[in-house]
């Protein structure tokens, strides 16, 4: 920056560190809580420094059957459910969005704009505002307590379609003309040219959608009544309710930690793609 006064630099770093402390404190507390035994976690004041039970807690959380009195599926299985749901949503959204964007950009056909607006409308209908009727539809289709029921209704995506449309529009027309002279048909052009050219966009979108899918709460809460189909995010809420009776906060916080770990890892290690995805899909 313009000034080179050391006091400003020190102040800047101080503010940033304070901000980080503020942001990180809840997560630190979670980590600390997950590293003590259950008895320590009932004694006020609660610890601020990690204990030595972290790995033990992780083992009993992942493999055990939840809190005493609310025996549930082991957390590793619920994490697997979450993973299946997150991956189906991410891949599903990308797949159906990229092909519809392809059709809308590269073909001229009757009702093309009609389809475009139909997809656009989904932007205005978040699951939260149509839960009850959507629930009925899914129930009528017999999709309750299934992976399809978890992911299918969330798969339509206007934002992803718009993003791919935007990406395709920036690809020069000559690319298509050249491919046509080379004799490539539509699907060949799609596989050989469009898909490779959209690679980073797909990856960026995947990062965002994986987080979106993993963090779904209301929808899985409604349509999974079978404990075997519960996702880890939903189960945390159930544990929270149960905590009134059995305050095993070490287990609860370990579950919280495990539930937030995959998306956090994705954000931290794919930060560039994450930022790209975030800024491109919301514009």
């Amino acid at each position: 920056m313009v000034e080179h006064r050391p006091i400003l630099t020190v102040l800047t770093h101080l503010v940033m560190l304070t901000g980080i402390l503020l942001i990180a404190f809840p997560i630190w507390i979670t980590f600390v809580a997950a590293s003590h035994d259950a008895i320590r976690m009932t004694q006020v004041p609660l610890p601020l420094w990690p204990g030595d039970q972290f790995w033990h807690n992780m083992k009993i959380t992942l493999l055990g059957s939840g809190l005493r009195g609310t025996e549930t599926t082991p957390v590793w299985w619920m994490m697997f459910n979450s993973l299946v749901m997150a991956l189906s949503i991410a891949f599903g959204k990308i797949a159906i969005s990229i092909i519809s964007a392809f059709a809308i950009v590269y073909f001229r056909f009757p009702f093309r704009m009609g389809f475009f607006w139909l997809i656009f409308i989904t932007l205005m209908l978040p699951v939260e505002v149509r839960i009850l009727p959507t629930f009925e539809v899914v129930a009528n289709l017999g999709l309750l307590n299934s992976y399809a029921g978890l992911s299918l209704p969330l798969i339509a995506s206007a934002t992803a379609t718009f993003m791919f449309r935007q990406v395709f529009l920036t690809i020069p027309d000559e690319m298509l003309e050249s491919a046509r002279i080379d004799g490539a048909g539509p699907m060949r052009f799609f596989w050989d040219i469009l898909l490779p050219l959209s690679r980073t966009n797909i990856a960026a979108l995947f990062v965002i959608l994986f987080i979106y899918g993993w963090n779904q709460y209301l929808w899985p809460l409604l349509i999974t009544t079978d404990a075997d189909m519960t996702t880890v995010v939903v189960s945390l809420k159930q544990m929270l309710t149960a905590a009134e009776a059995t305050p095993e906060w070490n287990i609860i916080m370990m579950t919280a930690l495990l539930a937030m770990l995959p998306p956090i890892l994705v954000v931290v290690f794919m930060q560039k793609l994450f930022v790209k995805g975030l800024t491109e899909t919301d514009k």
Binding site: S100, A103, Y106, I119, L125
Partner: peptide
């Protein structure tokens, strides 16, 4: 430029449109 008319674009938008109709509209 566009690809010549065919049934393909309808097939391509079909999944998205089906899901939109069933679970949104």
């Amino acid at each position: 430029v566009h690809f010549p008319p065919s049934i393909l674009p309808y097939l391509l938008v079909a999944p998205q449109v089906a899901i939109t109709l069933i679970f949104f509209i």
